[in-house]
């Protein structure tokens, strides 16, 4: 599903170049639930952003669903993210002027799914995540946990090949965090590939595999 070869990412600040990822090799199979862990600044989120095609690596190769990322144009990457990836961000990343259902339906409409079907799918995703009663609320009218669930509904509404989650529970209380993780487990059982960055060990342990990163390198991959 995902193959990463000798991935390097460095940032330049004037004359200073900081290498955040120092030649990572990694593989994820279809249907796997992988947790990426590491201390702050270890490079775990940067690694996720490269894999999920949100950023450009300095060097190395990413093959995702059989496609080489370095051959893709920016527009192709955008389209790839639209059709094959789902994203859950730490801060929910909802659009404040769109209602719950509009946030979820937007990527579906962008895929040229007809309006009626798109809204139906969006509604189903929200009902599934127990937000069927909040369809017309704006994000500002929802709690943090609810916002994160909307974010998940948006990510899964069109059944992506891979679900990328960057610290999805970091801003949530225990109850909401547990609800998010329960939902991830349920998705995993249904065969969803999930790659999640987290620094919380109790949630990482729920994943099928834990990949630990330190100083820009994978230091261990443990099967749970």
């Amino acid at each position: 599903m995902i193959q990463v070869k000798n991935l390097v990412k460095s940032f330049k600040d004037g004359q200073t170049e900081t290498k955040v990822l120092k030649g990572i090799d990694f593989q994820a199979q279809q249907g796997e639930f992988i947790a990426i862990m590491g201390r702050s600044g270890a490079g775990k989120s940067t690694f996720l952003y490269q894999m999920s095609l949100l950023d450009f690596p300095t060097s190395g190769e990413i093959i995702i669903d059989g496609e080489h990322s370095h051959n893709m144009t920016s527009e192709q990457k955008t389209n790839f993210r639209l059709t094959k990836c789902g994203y859950v961000f730490q801060d929910y990343a909802l659009l404040p002027e769109l209602t719950t259902i509009e946030n979820v339906v937007l990527p579906l409409l962008m895929q040229n799914i007809n309006k009626k079907d798109a809204y139906q799918k969006a509604k189903e995703a929200l009902v599934r995540i127990k937000l069927g009663h909040r369809l017309k609320n704006l994000p500002s009218q929802l709690s943090g946990g609810e916002q994160q669930r909307v974010s998940i509904a948006r990510a899964i509404a069109n059944h992506p090949k891979i679900l990328f989650a960057d610290e999805p529970t970091a801003n949530l209380d225990n109850e909401s965090s547990q609800a998010v993780m329960d939902f991830f487990l349920q998705l995993h059982k249904e065969g969803q590939t999930i790659i999640m960055v987290t620094h919380e060990e109790q949630y990482a342990k729920l994943a099928q595999k834990i990949v630990k990163i330190d100083d820009g390198k994978i230091i261990s991959q443990i099967q749970n």
Binding site: T78, T83, Y87
Partner: peptide, 9 residues
């Protein structure tokens, strides 16, 4: 975010 979730620029 819009670009991130795949909305065309």
């Amino acid at each position: 975010i819009l670009k991130g979730i795949g909305i065309n620029g």
